[in-house]
């Protein structure tokens, strides 16, 4: 039961957070509808966490934020390269062949808005403060980005990952929002939401 309760709770967090994040995205994309998959919440061993992002050599755009405040943790927003370019085209109304400075800056801001929306939703729900850092952005091999996120979060044993995938209805855009809460703070968050032992 312990396990189910915790996973259910995390799924709900993922749902609420991603709901707000994708609403923000949808508004920026002038109402383009987004479909959100049911959040995939997993407690992974180190080895499983390492293999969590498939296609280690695939080029992706990764936006990374450190969360401070009452609940500390790390958030990543990961997009395949093609999806990132399509997003930039929708945001700028110009064709995007390569991700130049302007395009990266647009994506960084977009990631920032989505992540902030996600955290704001959690903060409202729990009365806790969750403050995002300035976002970092990288275009690189998925393995290198994911590995750097795990190292930044100092995941060495087990990791709780809340991953939500979303798709746009019209354009071929997909992405992942991943939240890695620090274990201790996460228990505090659960407490503040009225969940006793999880």
């Amino acid at each position: 039961m312990y396990y189910n309760t915790k996973l259910d709770f995390l799924k709900e967090l993922g749902n609420i957070g991603t709901g707000h994040a994708t609403t923000a995205l949808s508004q920026m994309l002038k109402g383009e509808l987004l479909r959100i998959e049911v959040p995939n919440v997993q407690l992974l061993s180190f080895n499983e966490a390492v293999a969590f992002v498939g296609g280690l050599e695939q080029v992706v755009v990764g936006i990374f934020v450190v969360v401070s405040g009452d609940v500390k943790g790390h958030m990543a927003f990961i997009l395949p390269l093609g999806s990132a370019k399509t997003l930039v085209e929708l945001l700028t109304n110009e064709s995007c062949q390569e991700l130049d400075e302007m395009a990266l800056s647009a994506l960084q801001e977009l990631g920032n808005i989505m992540i902030t929306s996600y955290l704001n939703a959690l903060a409202k729900l729990s009365n806790a403060t969750l403050l995002p850092s300035v976002p970092g952005i990288a275009v690189d091999m998925a393995g290198a980005i994911w590995q750097s996120v795990l190292a930044g979060a100092e995941v060495v044993n087990m990791a709780t990952l809340i991953r939500t995938e979303f798709f746009t209805m019209e354009k071929a855009i997909q992405g992942d929002i991943i939240f890695l809460p620090d274990e201790e703070d996460f228990q505090k968050l659960a407490h503040s939401l009225g969940l006793e032992e999880i």
Binding site: G62, F64, V66, S133, V134, G136, I137, A138, D140, A144, I145, S148, A151, G152
Partner: peptide, 15 residues
């Protein structure tokens, strides 16, 4: 490497 250099989290990056 330091893939997210603008974060300046540590004076010396993990890399």
């Amino acid at each position: 490497a330091n893939l997210f250099p603008n974060l300046h989290l540590d004076a010396i990056s993990i890399g």
